[in-house]
Amino acid sequence: MKVEDIVRILDAKVFAGEEQLGLELNSACGADLMSDVMAFVKDRVVLLTGLMNPQALRTADLLDIKVIVFVRGKKPTADLIEMAKEMGMTMMTSKYSMFLACGRLYEAGLRGGGVREID
């Protein structure tokens, strides 16, 4: 799935990284706790989160995540937009809740994600 498909499916507004709309992704991670992102992340990931602070971007940057979606209509501040541009990250906001945003992407065919066994 391309980044531009994600923008369309999530009815999202893009704030940074428009040049990466053609980038191909194959998995997603929806989380508000950043250590959970670190425990589960795969390659070519879009991160969906309700956490809007520099740590969300730093976590994504450390994991080579190039696309971040803020759910529930949260708009990033100018500082965060600037930070995303410096990191070469595409940043967008979707009007949908986490549940609906993840569900819409899954339904549209984005199926990759981390799975952990229960001990």
Binding site: D32, L33, M34, S35, D36, M38, A39, T49, L51, N53, Q55, A56, T59
Partner: peptide, 17 residues
């Protein structure tokens, strides 16, 4: 701290892994 996105209880396990 949790409201900042931390405190998932995965920190030390993630370090070990």
């Amino acid at each position: 701290v949790r409201s900042m996105g931390f405190g998932a209880g995965m920190g030390m396990p993630n370090m070990k892994r």
